[in-house]
Design a protein around this nucleic acid. Structure first.
Length: 163
DNA sequence: GCCAACGTTGGC
DNA sequence: GCCAACGTTGGC
């Protein structure tokens, strides 16, 4: 596709005790189904994702929280079967096979940061103050990232000081 | 461990 | 359709 749109950038949160960047790195084909999102706004962002879009893999619920590496969207949104499984923690009786509510994408690990980028690192970077994940009360597990923010985070992840 | 922020639920 | 109550997330 000569006129393919440029990749867009996203951030996805995961609790490493549940699924870490290392888990993704060790998974077959370094790929996983991003199951379990049960928030409409986050789901809608996943619906916007295209193959080749780039993802910051954010570890939440740990100290320090931060970004472990990058991944790439390899399959666009499709129904999240875990919502139909009554034994699954993410079971949602409102979702049916005929009318699935919840969706997921597949992502493949791309680059492991040589330097884990902590929240403190992000906070210290003037160009990242407006980053969505840094805003108070921001609980979305899937959210967009600006291209300039992506560049800065990747430089921090490579261990490059930006000042 | 506390609590602010936010989404969802349910009573009316 | 409003809004109080509740549960969850996540920063600090």
């Amino acid at each position: 596709m000569p006129n393919a749109a440029p990749p867009r950038h996203w951030l996805m949160k995961s609790e490493p005790s549940v699924f870490s960047f290392d888990d993704l790195w060790k998974a077959p084909k370094r790929t996983t189904h991003w199951a379990g999102v049960r928030n409409y706004q986050a789901r809608n962002f996943m619906r916007e994702m295209r193959r080749g879009d780039l993802v910051l893999f954010y570890h939440s619920g740990v100290e320090p929280a931060g970004i472990a590496g990058t991944a790439e969207v390899v399959r666009t949104a499709y129904p999240d079967a875990s919502a139909l499984d009554a034994r699954d923690h993410g079971y949602d009786p409102k979702s049916t096979a005929e009318n699935p509510i919840w969706e997921m994408v597949d992502v493949r690990a791309k680059e492991r940061f040589s330097h884990f980028v902590t929240r403190d690192d992000l906070k210290a970077e003037p160009g990242l103050q407006a980053m969505r994940v840094m805003q108070r009360g921001q609980r979305l597990s899937v959210m967009p990232v600006e291209p300039a923010e992506w560049e800065l985070v990747c430089r921090l992840g490579a261990g490059d000081a930006t000042r």
